[in-house]
Nucleic acid binder design. Structure first.
Length: 293
DNA sequence: TGCCCCCTGCAG
DNA sequence: CTGCAGGGGGCA
């Protein structure tokens, strides 16, 4: 078994939750709120948080960068950031098809890491679990939501992101490394450690390569691979290398598709060289010494 | 620009 | 038992 790995939910993981919860929550009305760890909802008090949520009806579920956004019909939004170990788990009312979570799930609802519970009128529950307590959930107005999301760069799967945009970034920050740029949420939204390493591998570029040394063709290839790996991972329900779970408590199935992330010491799936791990940009960084330059 | 901090579980 | 893992915000 691979060694200890800690990976936070990134774009594909949060997008998976968004798609699932959009089907499950829209039209539901909040009947009860339980705040089990008050810091999870800072800066709001548990009392105010609860009062404002009671009776609210879910209109849609959104995602921006790595933030999961539950919109209510009164214009307010409940925003979740899962950070390292956050989970958002949906448990249908008793008698529901998957009551108690996914049959093979190891997730406790509620459990010792449950920080917040929402109960809906029909008896369904939504649990916010977070072992490390880095994650948060904020109830915000439309204006505040705009502020929260305005610091993020373009969505990589939107038309705002393109090969030219990426190349322009590299020209703008020639002394930064590819990984530093890919991880910077103000430049591009939603890419974290896993998909930064994976997209660099897939495009044959070293994560610590200076952006200024990358030519237009290479930038175009990296762009293409970023989009491809994010889409593929979404189609697999994301990467559950450790804490991340889908809304029913089950694991995403992208781990077998990983080429370098979490594979230090294992053989490269392309050339059989040993995958290496270094520390770069403050993160564990995985690469193939033979495939990437 | 880079380091500290928030946290907990697990490796060593 | 110590120390490391790490997103992102804050601060020097």
């Amino acid at each position: 078994m691979p060694p200890y790995k800690s990976a936070m939910p990134e774009l594909p993981e949060v997008e998976t939750l968004r798609r699932e919860l959009n089907k499950l929550l829209v039209g539901q009305t909040i009947k009860n709120v339980e705040v089990l760890w008050t810091k999870a909802i800072l800066p709001m008090t548990a009392k105010k948080f609860t009062t404002e949520l009671l009776g609210q009806k879910v209109e849609s579920v959104d995602r921006r960068a790595k933030m999961l956004i539950v919109n209510f019909s009164n214009g307010k939004s409940l925003v979740f950031h899962l950070k390292m170990t956050g989970q958002v788990i949906f448990v249908p009312k008793k008698g529901g098809a998957t009551f108690g979570g996914h049959p093979t799930s190891d997730v406790q609802t509620p459990g010792k890491h449950t920080r917040l519970i929402l109960e809906f009128k029909n008896g369904d529950h939504l649990y916010f679990n977070d072992m490390r307590k880095f994650g948060w959930s904020r109830l915000v107005s439309a204006t505040e939501l705009n502020t929260l999301t305005s610091h993020s760069g373009p969505e990589p799967l939107s038309k705002d992101f393109s090969a030219d945009f990426l190349f322009d970034l590299f020209q703008k920050y020639p002394n930064r490394t590819l990984k530093q740029i890919l991880l910077d949420q103000t430049l591009i939204a939603g890419i974290g450690n896993i998909y930064a390493d994976e997209s660099c591998f897939l495009s044959g570029l070293m994560p610590n390569r200076k952006a200024g040394t990358v030519n237009q063709k290479q930038a175009a290839e990296l762009y293409k691979q970023i989009v491809a790996v994010l889409k593929l991972s979404i189609s697999k329900g994301g990467t559950s290398s450790r804490n991340y779970r889908r809304s029913d408590g089950s694991r995403g199935s992208f781990v077998p598709c990983l080429m370098v992330y979490g594979r230090a010491g294992e053989t490269c799936k392309k050339c059989r060289a040993l995958i290496q791990k270094i520390k770069h940009a403050g993160r564990g960084t995985h690469f193939c010494p033979q495939c990437q330059h």
